[in-house]
Design a protein around this nucleic acid. Structure first.
Lengths: 204, 204
DNA sequence: CGCGTAAGCATAGCAATGTTATGTATTGTG
DNA sequence: CACAATACATAACATTGCTATGCTTACGCG
C-alpha cells in the first residue's frame, strides 16, 4: 500500500491560508491549480472541502495558541493580561480572513479543546493576579477570562469584518482597565500595568 | 411598461430570512421553489444573489434598529443602557443566522448608516448619563458607546457561533457595570441600575 | 528478494450552483 | 388604442464540489 505524504497536507493548508490572506476565493480547483497534485488530494487528506475548512480552523487556533504562548510573562500579572490581549488582537488582525474562518459556524470544530487552550493562558494570569493580591479573592478566573475574551473578540471581529476602523483596537485598553479595576485592582496601578502591557507589543 | 411588485421583494426577503432561521441552505433555486415566481425575480429585484444577501444584511440592521427604538427610556440612563444591551442580545440570539449574515464580510454594506443608527441610541443614553451626573464630563460618548457595542457583539458572536453557551450572555452585566463605573458612576448605584435594566427584559 | 494488495492518485463524468441569453407577455403611457 | 419598455419564464452555460473508475505506487509478508 501507499502512505500519505504529510508534506502534501501542509502544502495544501499553507496554500489555502495564503489564498485566504490574498483574498482569492479558495475553491477546490483553484487550490490545486499550480501545484502538482490533483483535486483528489483534497479528498485523501481532508475528505473534502469541509474537512479542509475544519483543518484551517484548527490551524488558526493552533497559531493563536502559539502566539499567546510566546508572550513573555513578567512579575506583573495585570501587565501580562494586557500583553496577552495585544497578542490576541495582533494575531487576529494580521490574518483577518483566517480569524473569520476560525469563528465560522457550519463546520463543527473538532478542536473545542483548542479554544479552551487559549483561554487557559488567560485564566492562569488571572490566578496569578489573585495570588499577588491585585484581584479580589472572590473573582472567578474562568468567568473573568471569558469576559476578557469576549471583549477582545468583539473588537477583533468588528474590525476584521469592517464596521470599525483599525484604530478602534485601542479601545481594548480602557475596557480591560475598567474590568480589572472592577476585579479589585488599584485604579492607578491598573492603568499603568495595562498600558505598559499593551504598548509592549501593540497591533501594527 | 411593467412595474415591479414590492410584494415580491418582501416575499423573497421574508422567505430567505425564514430559510435562514430554519437552517436550510439559501440557494437561488431553493429560494424560489414553492413560490410562483421564477429565478429571474431575484435578478430583477436584487440583481443577483449578492444583492439578496446585501438586502438581508440591511434587513437585519433595520430589525435591530427597530428593536432598540422600542426599548422604553426611563429617568435612569444607566438602567436604559443595560436595557438596550439586553435588547441587542435578545435580537441577536433569537435569529442567530441573520445576526451572522449582518456581520458577514464580502458584501459591502450599502447601509453603513444603519450601524451608526443603532449606535446612536447608545450615544444618546450616554449623553443623558453625563447630563445626569452619572458619568464624568470627560467621557467621550461615541467611544464609550463603541466599547459597549464591542462587548455586546463579542458575547453575541461567541454565543451565536458556538464557542460559548447561551448562559454566557449574562456576562454582559458585570462587564458593562465595570465599564460604567469606570466612566464615573457610583459602584452600588451602577450595579443596581444595570441589573434592573438587564432583568427588565433579559434574552430568553 | 519479490510479489500481492491496499491505498494514493489522475482523469473524467455528474449534480447543483449562480449567471446570462433569448423570447414572450404584460402593462403603463402617449 | 397602439407602442414600447420592462417584468418574466425557459433554457443554455460556466464553475462549483463530489464520485466513479482505473492505474500506479510502495508497504508488508513470505
Amino acid at each position: 500500500m501507499r502512505t500519505k505524504d504529510p508534506a502534501v497536507r501542509s502544502l495544501l493548508l499553507d496554500r489555502a491560508a495564503q489564498m485566504l490572506r490574498t483574498r482569492q476565493p479558495v475553491t477546490l480547483r483553484s487550490l490545486v491549480a499550480g501545484t502538482d497534485v490533483s483535486t483528489m488530494a483534497v479528498y485523501t487528506y481532508f475528505g473534502g472541502m469541509d474537512g479542509l475548512w475544519k483543518a484551517l480552523r484548527q490551524e488558526g487556533f493552533t497559531r493563536l495558541a502559539a502566539k499567546l504562548a510566546a508572550v513573555p510573562m513578567s512579575e506583573d500579572p495585570v501587565h501580562d493580561l494586557a500583553a496577552l490581549g495585544a497578542a490576541y488582537l495582533s494575531n487576529a488582525l494580521e490574518a483577518p480572513d483566517l480569524y473569520r474562518v476560525m469563528f465560522d459556524t457550519g463546520f463543527e470544530l473538532e478542536d473545542a479543546a483548542a479554544a479552551d487552550e487559549s483561554l487557559h493562558s488567560l485564566v492562569h494570569a488571572i490566578e496569578r493576579a489573585k495570588a499577588a493580591g491585585r484581584f479580589r479573592g472572590d473573582v472567578d478566573p474562568v468567568a473573568l477570562a471569558t469576559q476578557s475574551w469576549a471583549i477582545g473578540h468583539g473588537l477583533a471581529s468588528l474590525v476584521a469584518t469592517g464596521p470599525l476602523p483599525h484604530a478602534a483596537l485601542a479601545h481594548v485598553v480602557p475596557v480591560l482597565t475598567a474590568l480589572f479595576i472592577g476585579a479589585g485592582d488599584t485604579p492607578d496601578r491598573c492603568r499603568q500595568s495595562v498600558e505598559r502591557g499593551w504598548n509592549q507589543n501593540p497591533p501594527a
